[in-house]
Amino acid sequence: MRSIVALLVCGALLGCAQSPTGRSQVLLFSENDMARLGESSFAQIKEQEKVSGNRADTAYVQCISNQLVAELPPVFGQHQWEVVVFDSPQINAFALPGGKIGVYSGLLKVARDQDQVAAVVGHEIAHVLARHSNERVSRTQLSNLGLSAADMALGQSGLREPAMAALGLGVQVGYLLPYGREQESEADRLGLELMARAGFDPQASIALWRNMSAASSGQQPPELLSTHPSHGTRTQELNAAMPNALALYQQARAQGKTPACRR
């Protein structure tokens, strides 16, 4: 039944789209809708989390982020993204629509150089590039609305406003709502290409996930019980994509793209 609803919504609202890798998506919200939600989410997170006062760390992450954002299509990279480092032992980072990047200081102890940090930030930016937040919230909204979504899609023009109101706190957008394994794998691939195009060594992504694995030893649930690919699966997929990424990296270096972001 949900697939029928999705098809009806696609037909009525032109919500069918494709991700950068060609995967079919249902996107119910406009770029402006998602940017507003992302900005609202980020403002709330900054109120809830302690913002780091370490200017060196912030400048370091900003430098890396700037190199990555410069490689984005104009619709995503037309302005400087806001980067905030949060003072927290969490080994985590995120990016939100509207050009927002958050990095927890605990990540900088595991991602040991600019290339490893670029692997994480590139992965998070790739979620935005592939519109995963829009996709995730759209799927949730379809599940919540059920057949009423199809009725509104077919006979009314007011789907988006009730949907936006039903979302509640904007902090749900792609931050508290987890991505699926398919989206995580897609972000890995796109993030690998993004960091390579910016001149960061894509091979650092393998070392990064080894560090992640060591840092979370005994804590990660089995892959079938998690929305994230296991470390082993993730490494295998990155290795498979590495030849193309290395070609992009060599091309970027030949073009003079040599990031020099230091902590």
Rank of each mutant, 00 (worst) to 15 (best):
Q203I: 06
L194I: 00
L107I: 11
A196T: 05
Q172Y: 03
M152T: 11
M164F: 03
R189A: 14
G170S: 09
G191M: 08
L108Q: 04
G155L: 09
V121T: 05
V103H: 02
L176W: 05
D201W: 02
G122W: 11
H127L: 02
E135N: 11
A187Y: 05
G99C: 12
D201I: 00
G102I: 10
G155H: 14
V173S: 10
A198Y: 06
G174L: 05
A163M: 14
R189G: 00
Q156N: 12
V117H: 00
L159H: 04
R131H: 14
S157I: 09
Q183V: 00
Q90H: 09
R112M: 07
E135M: 07
L192C: 01
Q90C: 00
V173H: 04
G102S: 12
G102F: 11
D151G: 12
G122N: 10
F200D: 08
Y179R: 07
A149P: 07
D115R: 05
T140N: 14
M164N: 03
G106L: 09
A166Q: 15
R181C: 12
L192F: 04
E184W: 05
Q116V: 05
A150N: 04
P202S: 08
L192P: 01
D201G: 04
I125A: 04
Q141N: 06
G180H: 07
A93C: 14
L145D: 12
Q172A: 13
G106I: 12
G155E: 08
N134D: 15
L169G: 13
E182R: 03
S133G: 14
G191V: 06
Y179S: 13
S157P: 01
M195E: 08
L129N: 00
R136C: 00
Q172I: 14
H132R: 05
L147D: 02
G122V: 09
R181G: 06
F94A: 09
G146K: 08
V128H: 02
V171A: 15
A166G: 15
P97K: 02
R181F: 10
G174Q: 09
L107Q: 03
L159W: 13
K100Y: 07
G99E: 09
N92P: 12
